[in-house]
Write a protein that binds this DNA or RNA. Sequence first.
DNA 1: CGAACGCTACGGTTCCAGCCGTAGCATCGC
DNA 2: GCGATGCTACGGCTGGAACCGTAGCGTTCG
Lengths: 228, 228
Amino acid sequence: MSNAPQIAEVASLVGDPARASMLVALLGGRALTATELAHAAGVSPQTTSGHLAKLHAANLLGLMKQGRHRYYRLAGPHVAQMLEGIMNVALLGPPRFQPKTRLDEQMRHARTCYDHFAGTLGVGLADRMTERELLVLGDEAGEVTPAGLDFLGKLGVDFAAARARRRVFCRPCIDWTERRPHIGGAVGAALAQRCFDLKWVERVRDSRALRITPAGRRALMEHFALAI
Amino acid sequence: MSNAPQIAEVASLVGDPARASMLVALLGGRALTATELAHAAGVSPQTTSGHLAKLHAANLLGLMKQGRHRYYRLAGPHVAQMLEGIMNVALLGPPRFQPKTRLDEQMRHARTCYDHFAGTLGVGLADRMTERELLVLGDEAGEVTPAGLDFLGKLGVDFAAARARRRVFCRPCIDWTERRPHIGGAVGAALAQRCFDLKWVERVRDSRALRITPAGRRALMEHFALAI
DNA sequence: CGAACGCTACGGTTCCAGCCGTAGCATCGC
DNA sequence: GCGATGCTACGGCTGGAACCGTAGCGTTCG
């Protein structure tokens, strides 16, 4: 009568710690090989192979074969959004102990969240833009103001897709570490892409973490009054 | 290092068919007793009790004791939003056979989605309001226009909470049956509440389904040009 | 007060899914 | 061509969880 079985099927796929680790790793936005995902999940390649096959069969992952490698990525924004929703519930659940590691510090500072920025960098950008009324972020939605559109346009951010509609909405995404919203959706993705193109921000190898370049540090201060 | 274990824990809670059925039943928005949920899930009361204890311990459900009954409800909008995200992924997954039952027809027509309307009614309202530019719905966000604010205000919809911010955003929610967005978020909740208050729409006993009253039928035609 | 009802605690059974070892197939480098 | 690498298929093991029956506690009603 209902779609509960299908919900359970998808949820149980995410419900295995190994698979959840893989999905979280892929939430970094990059396509990863089966071996990399095996390392991320802490299980053998054989086990990983089975997990990835299931996730792929359920359309949670996309697959790109390249030589002897198989690159997996999230099937789309809807999967990222689902994971985000689950993370949000996990965050509001019973409080937990979380041993802080060194790597955490880097992640806390700046990382990707599928296709946009998170961490101190992500919420910092959102805060500064909100202060200057370039952006309005509510609990359930957000919008770029005309001034914000102008501002981002001058930075060279490409709104071709987002501008198709008259308004440029954006989706607030609750930051896992900061517990406050940052800029998600098409706007967040376009802004992040521009920062990559301008070499303000670089990906850290084998991680979701990001490194802000010296040029990026200056530029963020200049354009966003954001001291990182 | 990461929060993957917590994600997996939450997801595995939803990943059991019995628990998923209970959560979907609670997505109707009402608080239900353990026995009602047992019936919804198709398992014994003993088993149900264990499931509900787990869901409650993980802060996915709220509990209200009333005499010898225990009323459970979703812990909050974040849980509903998570379920919505999972449903969305399940929808875009591999196509499935779905035997249509009689009850489905009623549900397809009009039902609640936590705190707002879904089904033909839900998407119909969204469509008509969009046509008249009372509402703008994008892929990831939406907003009530000034004309829409005026329109809904005259209907007596209470925006006290939503109006706190200058703008009234709303969250598009992908309809499970129609596969198109309907009005969610605070705006959807306020509109639904007003329709209940005006007795345009009634809940159907023991179901998420809704019945549109004769007065409601007339009013929807009059105010929204919506023929149901 | 006794019976019925709503719900939970505990014990035992069953079954499934994750895991790895071994083996096998494609691809790359020398 | 040969070995190394990346990945997958199969088989057997094992741990965990869902499930129900029985039993027990609190509440309601006659």
